[in-house]
């Protein structure tokens, strides 16, 4: 069955990217207590990989639904896989190839946005709720750009191209704040499409916005809220992303035929791979707070 083969192929791609990335990671003894810069870089690596993983599986499912009508629909799968590998490999030295992958991810996201906008504009109804709900999602490709940006930030931090100071912390906080906000918009749109039929559907449009606001405060250098509070909301956002997979699995079960009818319900039910994008962005936000902390110290 084609659906099953495709699922196996994408999982294999994911596993290869993760294992390849980790294998390429420079093999060195971990210090007892890592410097905050190292911690922040690792969080960024992980955040980028999580975001890219979410994009890999989500675009695989959505583009499979779209029958891979254009060859271009395979691109995000390839680029997201490369981003996972590049992010997890944790380069110590400036590395053109890794930089190239991250930049490619950023550009692919922008190109995807263009394609998705084109898809909406050519449909009857144009910029209508119908097309925002059901045509190619406007926000989704942005996650790949964010993965690229986050991965690049991690790499530059580690290689020393960017100094772990308060300025870079604030820039990173702003990036994460905007990223989370974009994700919130996408989630709100799709949960509105689902009429918020389950009260839990409100969680991902209430917790992450608070985290985003906190990060915005941090980015603005307002001094409030505290880094501790911000971190709390970021961890809550990260948890929301992981819990979302569980909620969505429950959602698939609630469709007609449940998991037995997976060939329909994995596509029509709530998307399993989407929620962890929150986790990836929250990790980027946590990295930002780590840098700020170091600057304070």
């Amino acid at each position: 069955m084609r659906g099953r083969n495709a699922a196996i192929a994408v999982s294999g791609l994911f596993a290869a990217a993760v294992l390849g990335g980790l294998a390429a990671r420079s093999n060195r003894p971990a210090p007892i207590r890592q410097p905050p810069r190292e911690q922040a870089a690792r969080q960024l690596d992980l955040g980028a990989a999580t975001l890219a993983g979410s994009v890999l599986f989500d675009s695989a499912v959505e583009h499979y639904r779209g029958s891979f009508e254009h060859r271009g629909m395979y691109v995000p799968l390839a680029v997201a896989s490369a981003t996972i590998a590049a992010s997890l490999s944790g380069a110590r030295q400036p590395n053109r190839m890794r930089t190239g992958v991250h930049v490619l991810a950023m550009l692919t996201g922008v190109a995807g946005l263009g394609f998705h906008i084109y898809d909406i504009s050519k449909r009857p109804g144009g910029w209508s709720w119908q097309n925002l709900f059901y045509a190619a999602p406007v926000g989704a490709p942005g996650a790949l750009s964010l993965a690229g940006l986050t991965g690049l930030a991690g790499q530059q931090l580690r290689t020393g191209q960017v100094r772990p100071d308060s300025q870079s912390g604030r820039a990173l906080a702003a990036l994460a704040a905007i990223g989370i906000l974009g994700d919130v918009a996408e989630v709100w749109l799709l949960h509105f499409r689902g009429a918020f039929h389950n009260p839990a559907m409100v969680l991902p449009v209430t917790i992450p916005p608070v985290a985003s606001l906190c990060l915005a405060g941090v980015a603005a250098g307002a001094g409030r809220p505290s880094l501790r509070t911000t971190r709390g909301w970021l961890w809550a956002t990260a948890a929301t992303g992981l819990a979302g997979v569980g909620f969505h699995a429950w959602g698939v079960h609630r469709m007609m035929g449940g998991w037995r009818n997976w060939s329909q319900n994995l596509l029509e039910g709530p998307p399993l791979p989407a929620p962890p994008s929150y986790t990836g962005l929250a990790l980027a936000g946590l990295a930002a707070t780590r840098l700020m902390e170091e600057a304070h110290e």
Binding site: S67, Q264, E268
Partner: peptide, 17 residues
């Protein structure tokens, strides 16, 4: 078509089944 219905319902769209 029950319990499984259809996913792809637009122009020129076909489910694998």
């Amino acid at each position: 078509a029950s319990p499984r219905g259809y996913v792809r319902t637009g122009y020129d769209r076909r489910d694998p089944w």
